[in-house]
Design a protein around this nucleic acid. Structure first.
Lengths: 250, 250
DNA sequence: CGCTCTCTTGAGTCCATTCAACTGGTGTGG
DNA sequence: CCACACCAGTTGAATGGACTCAAGAGAGCG
C-alpha cells in the first residue's frame, strides 16, 4: 500500500527544528482545545515532557510525506495544516485542513504515513511520539487521547456526509458551517473563516472543480451571504448558509 | 450538537445481552485482525478481562442510537455493522460499514454517540469501555489501540477520496477494491464481497442514488466485470475495477 | 512594463438526478 | 390455492447542474 503512494517533493524536506520544552503546555495559547484541556497542573507538566514542540513551521514546509515511516502524531498549536494524497496519475486530493487543537499524522497500514502534511501558513505543532502513548497512560491521559481521536473522527464523518451532497453550493455552505463550529470550539468567531489554502486546495477538499467553487463563492457573495477574499471568508448570513447546506446539518 | 441529532427508533432498542468472558480473546476467530493480533498470551488474558463480549446481535438490532450517552467503543468480532446519521429532514446518511477487527462507536463532542449503529446480519461485537483504556495502557496496549484507531481513520480517508470521484461507476469500483483490501487483511478473499446491506444503504454510503447504483451494477455485470446478487458481489475482473476506480487507487 | 500565477467568467457537453413505470419476490388474507 | 398488496430493485425518458475547455481579469514581482 505504502509503495503505491507517490510523494513528490514539491518543496524540499526541511528537518523540523525540535526543542524539548518542559513548560510549554502550561503557557500554550490553545491549551483548552488540546489534550491538556482536561488536565491538572501536575498532568500538564508531565504532558509537556511527553510532547515535543516544533516551532515556527514555515508556510509551504512539509511536516512529512506520504509513504515515509511514521513515528509521531501531530497536534496543531497554531496556524493551519493541510493533508493530501497524490495518486499514481499525479492528481492531488486534499484530505484535511487542521486548526489548533486538532490531531493529524495517522499511521497507515504498514507503519507509514498515508498522507503528506504541509503548513499552509506559519504554524507550530506538537509532536506526540507513538511510543509515548503508553507513558501518557501512566499519567492517566490515554482515555483523553482516545477521546480527542474520536473528536477528529467526528470531523471526518461530518465532512464525509458533506461530500455526499450533490450541489456544490451545499457542500461549500456545509464547509463554512462546519469550520465555523470548529473555530467556535477554539473560542474564535465562527463567522471569520481563515482561508490560507488556495482555491484549488479548497475545491479539492470539497470534491469539486476550481471553477465550480469560484462560481459558488461569486454567487453567494453577490447574494450578500458571504464576503470572501484571498485570506478569509466572512459569513454575513449564517442562517442562510445553514439552510443551503442543510443536509450536513447533523 | 447532540441535541440536533434525531434518533428515530425504527427498530426498538433491545438491550444487548452482556457476558463477561475471560478467555474469549484466545479463541476469537478474528483475533489476528484485532488489537489482540500483536499481543502475547499474558496480554491476551488481560485483554479478555478488559473487553466485554456481546454475543449474537441479531440482524436489524441497534447497538446504540446517535445522541445517547457513550461509554464504550465497539470492535466487530463477526458479521457486519452499519453506522448512519439522520438529519433534521429525516434523510439517512450511511457513514460506514464495519467488518471484523474494525472499530466503531466514536464518542462525539458532548460525550454522546454521533451516529447510530445497527447490525446488518447476525453479528457479535466486543465492547471496550472508555474507562478501560487506561487499564489497557498498564498492559502496554494503549499504543496498539491508537494504531488501530489510526487504521480506521485511514479507511475513512480512503472513502473520503473515493467520494470525490464524480463518476458513480468510479465510486462503486473504488468501493469494491477498497472493501476487497479490507477483506484480504482479514484473510478472506477480496473477490467475494458480502453485501448484507440494502442497495439503498450502499447507494447512500457511496453518495449516489439507488437508481444510479443499480445502473452501474447492471452495466458492470453486463460487461462481465462483476457478478452481483442480493447477498454478495463477485469480482470477476479485478484489474478492470482498479482501472475504473483509479483515482482512489492510493 | 511584461511576465506569471491565481482566480473569475463564459459556452457547450455529458452524466447523475429526478420522476415514473415496471418487474420480481415475499407475505398476507380471503 | 389464488389474488392482492407491498417492498426492493430495475429500467426508461427528460431535466439540470457540474464538468471541460477556453478566454479574460487581477494581483504580485522582477
Amino acid at each position: 500500500m505504502c509503495a503505491e503512494l507517490l510523494y513528490l517533493p514539491e518543496t524540499r524536506r526541511v528537518p523540523p527544528s525540535r526543542r524539548a520544552a518542559s513548560h510549554r503546555c502550561r503557557v500554550c495559547p490553545t491549551r483548552q482545545a488540546c489534550l491538556a484541556a482536561q488536565s491538572d497542573p501536575q498532568q500538564l507538566a508531565q504532558l509537556s515532557e511527553i510532547f515535543q514542540c516544533v516551532e515556527a513551521v514555515a508556510a509551504g514546509e512539509h511536516l512529512y510525506y506520504a509513504g515515509t515511516p511514521a513515528q509521531v502524531q501531530y497536534h496543531v498549536r497554531s496556524g493551519m495544516v493541510k493533508t493530501y494524497v497524490i495518486n499514481a496519475e499525479g492528481d492531488e486530493f486534499v484530505t484535511g485542513f487542521y486548526i489548533p487543537g486538532e490531531i493529524f499524522g495517522h499511521v497507515h497500514v504498514g507503519g507509514c504515513y498515508g498522507e503528506s502534511a504541509v503548513a499552509l501558513e506559519t504554524a507550530s505543532v506538537c509532536e506526540l511520539s507513538l511510543d509515548a502513548v503508553n507513558d501518557m497512560a501512566e499519567v492517566g491521559l490515554a482515555s483523553v487521547l482516545v477521546r480527542q481521536l474520536a473528536a477528529n473522527a467526528g470531523i471526518e464523518t461530518r465532512h464525509q456526509i458533506n461530500l455526499k451532497q450533490t450541489s456544490s453550493q451545499a457542500r461549500f455552505a456545509g464547509f463554512c458551517v462546519g469550520m465555523g463550529e470548529r473555530l467556535r470550539r477554539l473560542g474564535r468567531s465562527p463567522l471569520h473563516i481563515p482561508t490560507p489554502m488556495s482555491r484549488t486546495d479548497l475545491a479539492s477538499y470539497l470534491g469539486m472543480t476550481l471553477e465550480s467553487l469560484s462560481r459558488v463563492i461569486s454567487k453567494l457573495q453577490a447574494a450578500g451571504v458571504i464576503l470572501a477574499n484571498r485570506e478569509r471568508i466572512e459569513v454575513l448570513q449564517e442562517d442562510t448558509l445553514k439552510t443551503l447546506g442543510i443536509h450536513a446539518n447533523v
